[in-house]
């Protein structure tokens, strides 16, 4: 079953698989993504182990942790954050990002663990 999220999302639980939205995604403190997260603007205050795709921007907040690759147009990794991985950041990625977001499937292989994860307009 294919689903394409349009809304903004906030995640406060553990999710394994792909998390994709045409809107913004915020991984809150306590939230964890193991897999791929793809959105317009992605803010990581929790943990991501895997790939992060941001159509417009990716931000790793001071308490955020990312272990994996990032592809986006603009990137901020704040002082105090933890990041290990490869980055491709730039305007040239804009078209590629668009294709990736459109072709992605939600919630393909997505599985919440522990507390529920929720959507927010």
């Amino acid at each position: 079953m294919k689903k394409q999220a349009q809304a903004n999302m906030e995640v406060s639980v553990t999710v394994r698989g792909e998390l994709v939205s045409a809107g913004n995604i915020k991984i809150l403190h306590g939230g964890e993504i193991i897999g791929v997260v793809s959105g317009k603007e992605v803010v990581v205050e929790g943990v991501v182990k895997g790939k992060v795709l941001g159509k417009e921007k990716v931000e790793v907040a001071p308490q955020g942790k990312v272990e994996g690759d990032v592809e986006t147009v603009a990137l901020t990794v704040s002082r105090g954050a933890h990041y290990r991985g490869r980055c491709r950041v730039g305007q040239v990625l804009e078209d590629e990002q668009e294709e990736k977001v459109e072709s992605a499937v939600l919630p393909k292989a997505a599985e919440s663990v522990g507390r529920r994860w929720f959507w927010q307009k």
Partner: peptide
């Protein structure tokens, strides 16, 4: 480095280690 910011219109490609 301690922190990295790539503004819109900037380019960066490589391995990054922060924290």
């Amino acid at each position: 480095v301690e922190s990295l910011m790539v503004e819109k219109g900037g380019n960066f490609e490589g391995k990054l280690s922060v924290g």
